[in-house]
């Protein structure tokens, strides 16, 4: 069945692996740039999140009375519980980082242009789901930090144009931050959003398999997807795993104090790092901006920016160089704002 001279293995013959990878052998991708591996790295981090999240589910209790104590038990009592929680928390940060990196890479390579609009859109949906996972996950320990984050995050959502009020109540699971908020966040974090992410990821990958691409010219030196690209991807995965276990072993993700609605929020309260830039703008803006209520203006502007990002393949059909420069400037501004927020 195999062409002469093909080297296959015992396992490959019996599992049908050879048949599975044959289309990948024919397909070639560019060999340049580390950023080509970010998509695969994001996938791996998602899988680590799923695995460590399932493990946390064994001991976590989604209840305002018990949640904090159950996480405390995972951290302090269950063997390797602290390690597994650290893995979950660190991978989530790396997940967001690698997703952002992947997005930037696509923009800089102008890979959003036709005929890849659907890939771009599905990627944006994945980003939105990823942010939703991070938000809901941060609520679950029901620590003071989680409580404040749930309150502020859902309050900001109120200013989203048109959908604001609905989103505000939806995120809180009611009018106030209560046990319903926690229960809601839990359901979305462990079931709804991971399922949605898997679905859209499948769509994202199926779109990668577009037939026409096989014949599309590849810039620069190229390598076959299988085995070359996959092996390099596996090496990159190994590096990511090392990063995750190193961070998880040596840097604890502290739980903080339990949620207490009567506690005044300390002045060093900060959102997760990927929202620091927004925190900095909100914290340093005045009550009214251009005659509009401050948060309303800022959230509205952020939504407009988001809409521009979503519509990028349609706004920039030709792939102007200026788009890439604009993206770099934007990233630079966000980094500067975030660094300012930390000081």
């Amino acid at each position: 069945m195999e062409a002469g001279g093909r080297r296959t293995g015992w396992l490959a013959d019996r599992s049908g692996w050879s048949d599975l990878v044959r289309p990948l052998e024919a397909r070639r991708v560019s060999a340049t740039g580390f950023d080509r591996y970010l998509g695969g790295i994001t996938l791996l981090l998602f899988l680590i999140e799923v695995a460590s999240g399932i493990l946390l589910l064994l001991y976590y209790k989604p209840d305002t009375v018990q949640a904090y104590a159950s996480v405390g038990r995972i951290v302090g009592e269950i063997p390797y519980g602290n390690l597994i929680r650290n893995v979950h928390a660190w991978s989530s940060d790396l997940f967001v980082a690698s997703l952002g990196g992947h997005l930037l890479s696509v923009v800089l390579r102008r890979a959003y242009r036709a005929p890849y609009e659907l890939r771009w859109l599905s990627g944006i949906v994945l980003l939105a789901i990823g942010i939703g996972l991070a938000f809901t996950g941060a609520v679950l320990p029901w620590s003071q930090k989680a409580y404040v984050q749930a309150r502020v995050g859902s309050e900001l959502a109120r200013y989203v144009p048109v959908l604001g009020d609905w989103l505000h109540r939806f995120l809180r699971g009611g009018d106030e931050v209560t046990s319903a908020t926690l229960q809601h966040a839990f359901g979305f974090h462990v079931a709804v959003l991971p399922a949605a992410l898997s679905l859209f990821f499948a769509v994202h990958v199926v779109l990668l398999m577009r037939k026409r691409e096989e014949t599309a010219p590849v810039e620069g030196a190229s390598i076959p997807v299988y085995p070359d690209f996959i092996i390099r991807q596996a090496a990159a995965w190994t590096g990511v795993v090392v990063a995750v276990i190193t961070l998880a072993t040596f840097s604890d993700r502290l739980l903080g104090s339990p949620a207490d609605p009567r506690m005044a929020t300390p002045s060093d309260a900060r959102p997760p790092w990927y929202f620091l830039w927004f925190h900095q703008i909100v914290a340093s803006s005045s009550r009214d901006l251009l005659g509009v209520n401050g948060p309303k203006f800022l959230v509205g502007t952020a939504c407009l920016l988001g809409a521009l990002v979503v519509g990028l393949p349609f706004l920039d059909r030709r792939g102007w160089k200026v788009t890439a420069y604009l993206a770099l400037v934007l990233v630079f501004v966000l980094v500067v704002l975030s660094v300012n927020a930390l000081s």
């Binding site: 080297r7 063997p79 390797y80």
Partner: peptide, 29 residues
């Protein structure tokens, strides 16, 4: 099939790494 040393080494260390990662998971459960 001719055994490719590097493939075997890669597969072997992947399996060994998975086993090392599996130990804390089993202890945790």
């Amino acid at each position: 099939p001719r055994r490719d040393f590097l493939s075997v080494a890669a597969g072997g260390s992947a399996v060994a790494f998975a086993a090392a990662a599996g130990y804390p998971v089993l202890r945790y459960m």
